[in-house]
Design a protein around this nucleic acid. Structure first.
Length: 922
DNA sequence: ACCGCCGGGTGCC
DNA sequence: ACCGCCGGGTGCC
């Protein structure tokens, strides 16, 4: 193991400059690191592991697996790859390695630049990273250049002769970017290898069929998941039928020893039907999955029930107080187990104490035991392997007690509330909120908790998660799993590295944009072999993106196996899952007043001219920030004239350029509108603006720059970009802005429309509570004045508020007290999903959003479980304005989002331009 | 014979 | 490898 680590690290280091090779190697090694039965011939490793590490990573607290994982996850997407051709090659040296392969099995090819016999060496390995042999040296010499220079990715399939003792043939496929094709063919032919470019054509499937199939990926996931389970007695809230079903499914996923998808038993061997790999050992099953129920179906409650109901061996979690007969029995079962398998009698003693209902505080005083509890599993590989083989838990595994819940800040308080609400009050559950500067970081302490809740926010995360990495969790629950969609994000990497027996992802929106998003989820769940990027790309992602039906089918199978999803509209036995009150959506047209209309038309004509010019010149994307600014101004006109910020004049010194860029970035961000990053196709995080005025997430664009070699180009306009020229939004300014407000307040048509509605409602029924939603936080500020004037009691929720303040505000609003606020001024994106505002039954959407899903989410904050009244949604749309066009585009946009996984970057760019043309009626 | 031929030793990169 | 290749032994048939 040690030698292996050194070897792999050296491999990494020796090729830092050659990106593909480095990635290739690592993606394999990540899989290979789990393997210990290999006979490594290479004994060179003069450096210590730490030395090697600090060379590449600043922090030496990182673990080996973290680095390898990090590298593995950087394997580029295969989306745009084309097949250059195929070539029959030879694998030699079979007799020196233990790795075996089957007929038709996929193998990986890994460069071994440090091989002492041949620096061109190309290793052949199976999906677990076990070496099978080498590519014959002449061919390896031809391949090395191509692999090292990222000209092509080479993949192998062993098609015959697998029983050979010495050599066997392998079919090599060369994949890469179209522009590298000729160069690769030429390189190979120069060395006397002719790639067969025929017959490799994939039969394309019409996009529409694919799209529908993809839409249906999460449909029908209820089937064959029936069966119900009652929650443990410590859960006070009775579960609804569908929640019992979910609990039953989740327990089964945690306890049952079913084979993971695509594995079957063939004789003595376990066989992977996709890669044709087989192994003697039972493949490690995934204990966990994705709970992708719609919001409001009670995912939180279900997970709480799971935590309390399914401790080790399917027994309920032993909790303090209220020591029922049932709980005692489960303790004894554990004691019995421990006695059988463990020489550590301390463990038994401690569990005995638990069984007697002793105080929690005295239980973990023994330091040795605590250390054993929190002990890292790295280095215990052989033990782990034994576990897998027997498919039973080791005594060490049975010690894990704690469930770690990772959630966005916005739902943190919700978890605490829900625990409070759903627990039997006579039962003491140790729930620790791992948050804030004075959190308790002791491993001993943390691993003695029943539940640790933490947030996954910002850059603090990497540092703050480190104590969490030293702990062997019983279970890790990732709430809002799509927050780790971007595999390059630091927090995604940190999350992948947590050690846990069981892993769950909760998500209301499992696939937002593409297959790509799924990888991170699959990797988190540890679904082998797809936790290695190469295998995911080869077996799932590329086939699906290139329209291969089988690929899509595999994806569907995969998702079905690990996902439970019900929607608000799902039915069980012909009856709806939950009966939500009716929801009605009205659009109220707003007519602008004469002066407003004049101002609007002025701005529109001017904007139309400008944009028309860009369109004619074909420079829309180069001037994208300008275009956005124009659209933004028109949208602001529709709401209130005071929303329009003064534009800075056009100047060009560096400092002023910077100012202007910041100004543009401000326009995009400060309004709260939903700008998407063209790299990750998600809302921008850590926004930066390029000199060509396009906004991206900083990590995304940094990735683009670092992988583009000498000169990097803006993904949107192809203008040259440099890291040094990325402009960030100055932190102080994020909160500023609200100061400059008016001595003389004035109204607007939209304000009038809202106030009319609110007053009418109040006179009809003063107990009705409302959400007033806008993308413009300044509009919310403007609305405060008339609300106050008319004596409305209101609260405000926007992105700038601290968690504490937020919780307080929500509590105030949800209260049924007579003097409680009746209105929430809500910024569209504030808090993200999960907010519970069921006290409100009327929603006023002041301005249309680009993304209709955002609006839906907002409405769902009150139209969800717990809503007693009929929900009425009113959307204000200004007649004859950009807003009307936005509504039209919303539908089209929805379509585009759904099929985005199949579209190219060019498609997305043209769709943006089309949007803009349509908006401006050009 | 500065060759051919024979047969043993040997074998990934 | 039931091969190819290498290099030493050998030398009309």
């Amino acid at each position: 193991m040690r030698i292996f680590c050194r070897y792999s690290l050296q491999l990494i280091l020796s090729h830092q400059s050659r990106v593909l090779c480095y990635l290739n190697s690592c993606s394999f090694i990540s899989a290979a690191v789990m393997q210990f039965n290999r006979r490594w011939k290479f004994g060179w490793g003069r450096f210590s592991e730490v030395d090697l590490f600090t060379d590449r990573h600043e922090s030496n607290a990182e673990t080996l697996s973290q680095a390898i994982r990090a590298a593995a996850s950087e394997e580029p997407d295969a989306d745009g790859s084309v097949l250059f051709g195929q070539l029959k090659g030879t694998v030699v040296g079979l007799r020196y390695y233990s790795g075996v392969v089957n007929q038709g099995e996929m193998v990986g090819l890994v460069r071994q630049p440090q091989n002492p016999y041949d620096r061109n060496a190309v290793m052949v390995a199976n999906i677990y990273g076990n070496q099978v042999g080498h590519i014959k040296k002449e061919l390896a010499a031809a391949m090395a250049y191509i692999m090292d220079n990222n000209l092509a990715k080479v993949e192998g399939v062993v098609f015959s002769g697998t029983k050979n003792t010495y050599t066997m043939p392998v079919m090599l496929s060369f994949w890469g970017k179209e522009e590298s094709k000729n160069s690769v063919l030429e390189q190979m032919s120069r060395r006397g290898y002719k790639l067969n470019t025929e017959g490799g054509k994939l039969k394309g499937t019409p996009c529409t069929i694919l799209k529908n199939a993809f839409d249906n990926l999460f449909e029908g996931l209820m089937e064959s998941k029936d069966g119900e389970k009652e929650a443990a007695v410590s859960v006070a809230t009775p579960l609804l039928l569908h929640q019992k079903q979910a609990l039953s499914w989740m327990c089964a996923r945690e306890n049952k020893a079913a084979l993971p998808p695509f594995w079957e038993k063939r004789g003595e061997l376990y066989y992977n039907t996709l890669t044709c790999f087989s192994a003697k050992e039972l493949p490690e099953r995934v204990r966990g999955g994705i709970l992708a129920d719609d919001m409001g179906l009670g995912k939180t409650l279900t997970v709480i029930a799971l935590i309390l109901t399914n401790f080790h061996k399917g027994k309920p979690l032993p909790v303090e107080k209220c020591v029922s007969r049932r709980v005692l029995q489960s303790f004894q079962a554990i004691c019995f187990m421990s006695n059988l398998f463990s020489p550590i009698t301390k463990c038994v003693k401690i569990i005995d104490l638990y069984a007697l209902g002793a105080e929690g505080s005295v239980l973990f005083e023994d330091l040795d035991f605590a250390a054993a509890l929190s002990g890292s599993t790295s280095g215990t590989g052989s033990k782990k392997k034994k576990t897998d083989k027997k498919s039973s838990l080791t005594q060490n595994d049975l010690k894990a007690r704690t469930t770690l819940i990772i959630c966005p800040l916005s739902v943190l308080s919700n978890w605490l509330d829900q625990f409070e609400q759903h627990m039997d009050p006579n039962v003491k559950l140790n729930v620790y909120l791992y948050y804030g500067p004075e959190r308790n970081r002791s491993k001993k302490f943390l691993s003695s908790q029943d539940v640790v809740i933490t947030t996954i926010y910002t850059n603090v995360l990497q540092r703050s998660l480190i104590p969490l990495h030293g702990i062997s969790w019983l279970r890790v629950v990732l709430d809002e799993g799509h927050i780790i969609r971007n595999p390059n994000a630091q927090m995604s990497k940190a999350v992948l590295d947590l050690k846990a027996q069981r892993r769950w992802i909760l998500s209301g929106t499992p696939i937002q944009n593409s297959v790509r998003d799924l990888w991170m989820l699959v990797a988190f769940l540890g679904l082998k072999p797809f936790d290695t990027r190469e295998w995911w790309n080869r077996v799932i992602q590329r086939p699906v993106t290139q329209g291969d039906r089988a690929g899509l089918q595999h994806l569907q199978t995969l998702v079905k196996c690990i996902t439970l999803r019900r929607t608000k509209n799902s039915e069980v036995n012909g009856r709806p899952l939950v009966s939500l009150p009716e929801k009605k959506v009205y659009v109220e047209q707003v007519e602008l007043s004469q002066p407003e209309r004049e101002e609007y038309e002025l701005a529109r004509t001017e904007g139309k001219n400008t944009i028309g010019r860009y369109v004619a010149e074909g420079t829309v994307l180069r001037n994208y920030a300008d275009v956005l600014a124009i659209l933004m101004r028109l949208r602001q006109h529709c709401c209130h004239p005071d929303l329009l910020a003064k534009m800075s004049s056009d100047l060009a010194t560096p400092a002023e350029l910077r100012e202007r860029l910041i100004e543009k970035l401000r326009l995009v961000l400060a309004s709260g509108s939903d700008e998407e990053c063209s790299v990750c196709l998600d809302s921008v995080r850590l926004p930066v603006i390029t000199h060509c005025a396009h906004v991206y997430c900083r990590p995304c664009i940094a990735q683009v720059i670092s992988t583009s070699g000498q000169v990097a180009h803006c993904p949107l306009c192809r203008g040259e970009i440099k890291t040094s020229e990325l402009v960030e939004f100055p932190q102080e300014e994020m909160e500023e802005e609200n100061i400059t407000k008016p001595e003389r307040w004035r109204t607007s048509s939209k304000v009038q429309a809202l106030m009319g509605n609110l007053l009418r409602l109040r006179s009809k029924d003063s107990s009705i509570k409302c959400l007033v939603v806008s993308q413009f936080t300044r509009f919310l500020t403007i609305l405060e004045t008339p609300l106050r004037e008319h004596g409305f009691s209101f609260v405000r929720l926007d992105g700038t508020m601290t968690q504490k303040k937020r919780t307080q505000v929500i509590q105030e609003f949800q209260s049924s007290a007579a003097d409680s606020p009746t209105i929430v001024l809500l910024s569209l994106k504030a808090g993200g999903v999960g907010l519970n505002l069921t006290a409100a039954s009327h929603v006023f959407l002041m301005d249309p959003a680009w993304n209709p899903a955002t609006e839906e989410q907002c409405i769902d904050r009150c139209h969800r479980l717990g809503q007693k009244r009929k929900v009425v949604v009113t959307k204000f749309i200004v007649k004859d304005s950009v807003e009307e066009n936005m509504v039209k585009i919303q539908r089209k946009k929805q379509d585009l989002m759904e099929k985005a996984f199949g579209s190219t970057n060019t498609d997305r760019k043209t769709s943006r331009i089309d949007d803009i043309v349509a908006l401006m009626e050009l």
